[in-house]
Amino acid sequence: MRPETFHAIVRGDRSGPLAAAARLGLWAASGPYRLGVWWRNRGYDRGRRPVVRAGVPVVSVGNLTLGGTGKTPCVEYVAGFYRDIGLQAAILSRGYGAAAGPNDEALVLEENLPDVPHLQDADRAAAALRAVEELESEVLVLDDGFQHRRLHRDLDVVLIDATLPPHRDRMFPRGTLREPEANLKRAAVVLLTRCDQAPDADATRTRLTTRFPHLTVATSEHRPIELLGGDVPEPVESLRGKVVAGFAGIGSPPAFRRTLESLGATVADFRAYPDHHPYTRADVDDLRAWAARLPPDALVATTQKDWVKLRLPELAGRPLRAVRVGLAVRDGRDAFEAALARVVTGERPE
């Protein structure tokens, strides 16, 4: 099943007997999946599964869902925080789709944080030891690590998309939850993302702090910083009033479309690709043919995560620009950064 088809079915965007039958089958399959998640976590909770300690503080940035919460800007934020207070940080990730070299997330982080090493290895425990022994790292940021319990962590930061909080989602494969909301008991910090796109973000925050009093809950949004792809970075305000065609191969393509619209662009057309989509020559030819049908003064926009795999200045004579976004913590920033600082100072809240 194609990712876009899966999401359309589980969200209820598709109706009819076939879609209903598919949802019933996915619901039935979610039972064994939930049981497997419970059994695996129980093994770690009871000490039956071994845990590797890196010897330096480890901060995990993860989520409850299959993706689309905007982890990469948060990983950049956390790693940049430690770099800015004078620590040698390193980022560890599984490296999905990185068999032929650094994947899209690694390329984005390398571009935005060139002075922070990024190790991609399916065995992240081994990568952690290598970062400490060979790179003399003083703190490790574990990308997508909430479910990677084999590596001990000193702080779990969990991202939740405020437009689809876990209480409105379902367990995979009937929904996108990797594990139930109750497992937030393992986390210390929850960062609600895309709060600018969720009118009920404050209600979700209140619900989480009520159900999990131990959590630090902060709100955030992914804020466009600049446009890449030209000779020099351009202000995002230059999109206002422009006719734009967008495409994205990220966890939540609709979120990128909303970003373009929020910048005042008129989105004439939009294409969504699966997350981590590897653009082929055929894809580029197809995008050029698509762009050629746009008005001559139109601009094509994509995400930085897609652009680092293309590195093209234009498509069919239409400028191609990438929107670079950064994490902006709206409410709870001091508490969030205090939690990050405690990991490396050893201080504990009173």
Rank of each mutant, 00 (worst) to 15 (best):
F6C: 00
A8D: 01
V10G: 01
G12P: 06
G12W: 00
D13L: 14
S15D: 13
L24F: 15
G25F: 09
A28Y: 11
Y33K: 10
L35H: 14
L35V: 15
W38G: 12
D45R: 11
R48Q: 14
R48N: 14
V52Y: 06
R53W: 13
A54T: 07
V56Q: 10
L66I: 07
G68L: 00
V75A: 02
Y77F: 11
Y77S: 02
I85P: 03
A89L: 01
L92W: 03
L92C: 05
G97R: 13
A100K: 15
D104W: 00
D115R: 11
D121L: 05
D123Q: 13
A125Y: 10
A127P: 05
L129V: 03
E133F: 12
D156T: 01
L159D: 00
I160L: 04
D161W: 02
R174H: 15
R186L: 08
T193N: 04
R194A: 01
Q197M: 14
A198Y: 08
R205S: 05
L215N: 07
A218P: 00
T219Y: 05
T219C: 09
V244K: 03
G246Q: 02
G246P: 03
A248L: 03
F256S: 09
E261S: 05
L263G: 12
V267N: 06
V267T: 11
A272L: 06
Y273D: 10
Y279V: 13
Y279L: 09
A292R: 14
P295I: 01
A298I: 06
L299T: 15
A301L: 11
K305M: 08
D306R: 03
W307S: 10
K309Q: 05
L312G: 12
P313Q: 04
G317E: 03
L320P: 06
V323T: 04
V325G: 00
A328D: 14
R330H: 12
D331N: 13
D334W: 09
D334V: 10
V343E: 08
T345L: 04
